[in-house]
């Protein structure tokens, strides 16, 4: 058991885009070493929740605590420096930079000074990136870009990694490769908050699932409970 040291705690978060109220009081927690799956159909506010946690969307109300620090008013880079890595939907790699530069500008020791992930180590994890070091980011395939995005996130030596649709739009084989990497990374003790379309993969990997509907948490618990509840699965996840 990892204990209940909270790395991420968002309490009663509200956020809007203009006049559309998207998050309506979301409370979510991720503890040290824990893997939490964030589920819900398209447009339910999963990405908005993550972006609010990262400070990319302003919180209209509520509180974000990261590694014990009140981060509600902190700029995004300071949240990253508290040990929160974020791999966005669409990957967010720098297409005009080489693979090596993408990695180099992200690399730094973690918030406790630990330096478990080095450029060499992520290149061992993703040998394909090693072959593509001198290529520009926009010359990579979708799968390679996703690997680069994950590698870049790991190089910040985070305590928690947030993955938003990391397997979106990838071929099944590549998708499998990404999942096995996520499992491997998880085994190092890194906490994770994961959004993905694949309910079965998420159920297999996560300690806990949180289901979001129209900006509100409607279900929370161990994956087995969710899988056993056919009605819930059908109504909120469409499976």
């Amino acid at each position: 058991m990892t204990g209940h040291v909270e790395l991420l705690s968002a309490a009663d978060l509200h956020a809007s885009y203009g006049t559309s109220h998207i998050l309506r009081g979301v409370t979510i927690e991720v503890s040290r070493g824990e893997t939490v799956a964030l589920m819900g159909r398209n447009g339910m506010g999963k990405s908005t929740l993550i972006r609010t946690i990262m400070g990319l969307v302003p919180a209209a109300r509520g509180r974000v605590t990261l590694a014990g620090v009140d981060a509600t008013r902190l700029p995004t880079f300071a949240r990253s420096q508290l040990g929160i890595a974020y791999v966005p939907e669409g990957r967010g790699i720098f297409g005009t930079l080489s693979v090596a530069e993408n990695l180099d500008i992200a690399a730094r020791p973690g918030p406790d000074g630990e330096n478990a992930w080095t450029i060499n180590r992520v290149l061992e994890l993703f040998p394909r990136l090693a072959e593509r070091r001198t290529n520009r980011g926009d010359q990579l395939s979708g799968g390679e870009q996703q690997m680069l995005a994950i590698a870049r996130a790991l190089l910040t030596n985070p305590r928690l990694i947030i993955l938003d649709e990391a397997t979106e739009g990838l071929a099944p084989l590549i998708r499998e490769e990404i999942w096995s990497t996520i499992r491997l990374v998880r085994e190092t003790g890194l906490a994770a908050l994961i959004v993905d379309k694949s309910v079965s993969e998420l159920a297999r990997i996560s300690d806990r699932v949180v289901v979001l509907v129209k900006g509100e948490v409607v279900h929370e618990g161990p994956p087995a409970t969710l899988l056993a509840d056919q009605a819930l699965m059908h109504r909120h996840l469409g499976v």
Binding site: S80, P88, N102
Partner: peptide, 13 residues
Amino acid sequence: AAAEKPEMVDVIG
């Protein structure tokens, strides 16, 4: 990187 995707520069700290 900042000229291309300013937001992601912040995201990596």
